[in-house]
Nucleic acid binder design. Structure first.
Length: 483
RNA sequence: GGCCUCGUCGUCUAGUCUGGUCCAGGACGCCAGGUUUUCAUCCUGGUAACACGGGUUCGAAUCCCGUCGAGGCUGCCA
């Protein structure tokens, strides 16, 4: 049974790139009926925070791809392979015997060379135009253990090769690795060592991670082999890029899952978009539910080159998902979003709120836009009276039309304010009197919205309610008189 | 600089393994037209790419070589 994992370090909120890596891992685990594990790599205590760990877990949950094992939101740990935080593993001395083993077998050694000396050598190599390959002295006497770190003795001439699921055959020359640092001391492993030990101890079988780890792979394979652990399969997925084709980062704008959540994107749309970023079936299909993705996903069909994050495409997908929602679901989710994000819609009756959400969902990309759009309904900003005019229709005619419609709106009860009813009733009268629609409906719409572009007057009237609707029409009438 | 990886429309991509059916298909975007009281939606149409140069071959987006370009890594971070 395959076991896969993501191993983020909690040094920031859940990044879009991490989310996609998580998705691919989750898809593979679900499809192969394996396990998806979350391990928190918080060995860098200076930069790691519990708050970020929580955000990562919440983000995964919101996306609908929660881990099977790992720390939970409640602070509990789930799974048989814990602890799932490296900081805790360190406290328990998990790494010590392995570092000891490496030291005893001669694969690792203490090195107390100062940073200054290292920097000097690095600079020297750089100036000479040669690669910096550090070799320490494994047999040095009088080691200053306070200062020393533990280095791995990389073989001098070994070809390291593996078959990557997405990249095919990848080869590295071990000579260029140099003796890299694997631990600060006997209890404090660094990334490359900790990963190997934890992956082995957690029985991880497949490592699906970002391409930025490609050059770490030979180091980890070496350690893995020396420690006698089972071989892993690798899949290095391409990076998500910003508009300028460099690795997606903060300077590119919204890059965290929570930011998209707050903007009101649907998690299913997000998942669909992320999946399409670097993965595709040979057919033209683009819309997949998470369940469908599980069925058809193949690691081998992951793209080799990086993919630019295109928010227009995300918006388009979100709109499609919005439309696919039933009226009831749309109302529920929209309402929930508005309330959670502090938009005050209390003044609206449920009927009005339903119409509002329904109307807005036809014209926005994300729930977040409903809030700002809603405000515009209530704030009737002053508008030029000419705006009320439809083509060359005389002011008197416009005014008469408004009177006619106002009369109808006056007569009917609040309960009959409904977009469809209003539309059929008002249009019927216009037809009867042979009034061109634009001549009457354009002024009415402007009267109600004050804007050149807005939802239909029937929809606005329903959302505003009878009283406000009539008030706005008489306001328009006054404007017309001034002309 | 060194190592590794990648290179099809503006963007995501199909096609590359198993050369011809590809003067390269789809989607998003953009542009134009239509429907509509406006916007949006919807419908129709259009725009636009095999990085470059050699080679192999009857024939190359597809195979080989080189060049150029882009990205990642190059930490006692992960």
């Amino acid at each position: 049974m395959p076991r896969v994992r993501i191993a983020p370090s909690p040094t920031g909120p859940l990044h879009i790139g991490t989310a996609r890596t998580a998705l691919f891992n989750w898809l593979y685990a679900r499809q192969q009926e394996g396990a998806f594990i979350l391990r928190i790599e918080d060995t860098d205590t200076q930069r790691s925070f519990l708050e970020y760990e929580q955000q990562i877990i919440e983000g995964l949950q919101w996306l609908g791809i929660p881990p099977d094992e790992g720390p939970g939101i409640d602070g509990e740990e789930y799974g048989e392979y814990g602890p799932y935080r490296q900081s805790e593993r360190m406290k328990q001395g998990v790494y010590r015997p392995y570092i000891r083993q490496l030291l005893d077998s001669g694969w690792a050694y203490y090195d107390d060379t100062s940073k200054q000396e290292l920097d000097r050598q690095r600079k020297e190599a750089e100036e000479a135009g040669e690669p910096f390959v550090y070799r320490g002295d494994p047999y040095k006497a009088d080691i200053d253990y306070e200062q020393a770190v533990i280095r791995f003795r990389a073989p001098h001439d070994k070809q390291i090769m593996w078959r990557d699921y997405v990249r095919g055959e990848v080869t590295f020359d071990s000579h260029l690795l140099g003796d890299f640092v694997i631990a600060k001391d006997i209890d404090t492993p660094l990334y490359n060592l900790a990963v190997v030990i934890d992956d082995a101890l957690m029985d991880i079988t497949h490592i699906i991670r970002g391409e930025d780890h490609l050059s770490n792979t030979p180091k980890q394979m070496l350690i893995n082999e020396v420690l006698g652990f089972a071989k892993k399969k690798y899949a290095h997925i391409p990076l998500i890029l910003g508009q300028d084709k460099s690795k997606l980062s903060k300077r590119h704008g919204a890059v965290t899952v929570s930011q998209y959540r707050e903007q009101g994107y649907l998690p299913e749309a997000m998942i669909n978009f992320l999946a399409l970023l670097g993965w595709r079936e040979p057919d033209d299909r683009e819309v997949y539910s998470p369940e469908e993705l599980v069925k058809v996903f193949r690691l081998k069909r992951i793209q080799k080159s990086g993919a630019v994050f295109d928010s227009a495409k995300l918006d388009n997908l979100n709109v499609r998902y919005l439309k696919a929602l039933s009226d009831e679901e749309r109302y529920k989710k929209g309402n929930q979003f508005l309330k959670q994000n502090g938009w005050n819609v209390d003044r609206l009756s449920e009927k009005q709120l339903r119409v509002l959400i329904d109307v807005e969902c036809q014209r926005i990309h994300t729930f977040g836009e409903i809030g700002t759009e809603t405000q515009r309904f209530w704030e009737l900003t002053d508008y030029p009276s000419e705006r009320l005019q439809w083509k060359n229709t005389p002011v008197e005619t416009i005014s008469a039309h408004l009177d006619l419609l106002a009369g109808m709106l006056e007569e009917r009860s609040e309960e009959t304010y409904d977009p469809e009813l209003l539309e059929t009733d008002l249009k019927a009268v216009l037809e009867e009197r042979e009034i061109p629609r634009g001549e009457a409906l354009w002024p009415l719409r402007v009267a109600l919205s004050g804007r050149e572009a807005s939802p239909s007057p029937f929809e606005i009237a329903t959302i505003l309610g009878k009283e406000e609707t009539l008030r706005r029409i008489s306001l328009a009438q006054n404007k017309l008189k001034e002309v």
